[in-house]
Nucleic acid binder design. Structure first.
Lengths: 243, 243
DNA sequence: GCTTAAACTATGTAAATACATAATTAAGCT
DNA sequence: AGCTTAATTATGTATTTACATAGTTTAAGC
């Protein structure tokens, strides 16, 4: 892990600084709320101008990873899990950006007959098996989300793929299938016994439930995803502007 | 709409420039793909430095409203139109569109001291009362959402307005205050006794909780809205496209 | 002891300047 | 005409400098 900036590199200094900051803020001390070195000092230490450093910091502030307070300092945002980018970063990438170590508690891939609604979304029959993936993930402390994904047979998954890789990256690399459009429905549910057991909460406790309909480049359905999030650990953010 | 920058205004120049750009790009010519004036020229015309202008442009680029190409120019991104506009229907309009008859179970308007977080969002003190509106609404059968709204004193509400009208329509008509930007956070909660009583459910049952930060034309905070939705009766939909 | 004022700290805003680089256009050569 | 090269254009990167302003801490005054 290099914590220095290479002035001879063709990579712009502010990009280098940005990446360096992303690493830096993973430090438990900063995660715990310790202020970052002030801009003037940090710029000096990195041998770049304050303007350039601010350019880097700005990006992280925009992503809501950092918070700046005039006259006080800059610190890591107390990250509940949420962000605009959430929609298009896969779960593991999002967690990585926040310095949270993702742990896979369970990963199960199987071939199953689709239920009515899944078959209907995929526009296929209920008599042909498709790939189902179940995944229990969370921080190192505890699981906080349970995913179920169904994949359209068109993609050609075998079920033997490396599902430990970021999902959409894998699909793009191995099957040239690019997730392009997603429609989501978010609601609150009582955890049933099964989900409660997985998330290690009481049955009947609230969970945030997200249905996700994912379409490929040709607007064809490719994935049907169900996500059950432990209530207190997940906030979904939406930003919209009047048009 | 003034297309000039006021150097004597306390509003930072790059913020003014940003707002000005937001207006400018509404011009059909720019929407159609015409290049914006180049940075050096535009800065000169606005009588600000290129650095400051770039600061403004950067924001719109972050928001994916503008696209820059080195050596070529800057133009409006061909904006994907998503059903995000859904969020811009008020509750009653939304219900109407679904063919559900809205019943107002309770409507209570009062003047109260804002709590910390509300005051902080509005950037005011906690020692001056503001207008609070509480509203319990639902279908003809039963209530299914409890709203709490706080309004910024800038708007000038008296508390005597006709809150039975669609809210944003009333604000626009009576106070020329237009809701322009909304940031929302959606999560799942256990209903406390108060909310449970209102929604006629058991305490501890899940509710979908939506915080909504609403800003006006000048990106100034205007409304802080809390919504508690009975879990089984509300689904939040989001549509997003990869960029 | 309490309040007020001043000093200090760190971010916020703004400009002027210089050069690098990608995309496009024009010029020049065979 | 078709290719290569040079000039032009507009954004990209980076520094230096200066002062403003919001929070915090310290000192002064009553």
């Amino acid at each position: 892990m290099k914590l220095a900036i290479d002035h001879k590199s063709p990579i712009p200094l502010h990009i280098q600084a940005e990446q360096l900051l992303r690493e830096l803020i993973k430090d438990p001390a900063y995660q715990a709320g310790k202020l970052l070195p002030n801009e003037v000092e940090l710029a000096k230490k990195l041998a770049i101008s304050r303007t350039t450093l601010r350019q880097a910091i700005n990006k992280l502030v925009y992503e809501e990873l950092l918070i700046r307070k005039k006259g006080f300092g800059t610190k890591v945002a107390n990250s509940r899990i949420s962000s605009k980018s959430m929609n298009w970063l896969s779960f593991s990438q999002e967690m990585k950006a926040r310095g949270i170590n993702v742990k896979n508690y369970e990963l199960h891939v199987s071939w199953v007959f689709p239920d009515e609604s899944t078959a209907s979304f995929f526009d296929i029959g209920t008599d042909k098996k498709i790939v189902k993936m179940e995944r229990l993930r969370g921080s190192s402390d505890s699981p906080f989300v349970y995913f179920i994904s169904y994949f359209h047979p068109r993609i050609g998954l075998t079920g033997e793929e490396d599902f430990k890789r970021p999902l959409y990256e894998m699909l793009e690399d191995e099957y040239s299938t690019i997730a392009n459009l997603s429609k989501e429905e978010i609601s609150a549910l009582e955890a049933n016994k099964f989900i409660a057991g997985k998330l290690e909460i009481e049955a009947g406790s609230p969970v945030l439930f997200r249905k996700r309909f994912v379409y490929d480049q040709g607007e064809r359905p490719m994935e049907y995803n169900l996500g059950y999030y432990k209530a207190e650990s997940f906030v979904y953010t939406v930003e919209s502007r009047r048009t």
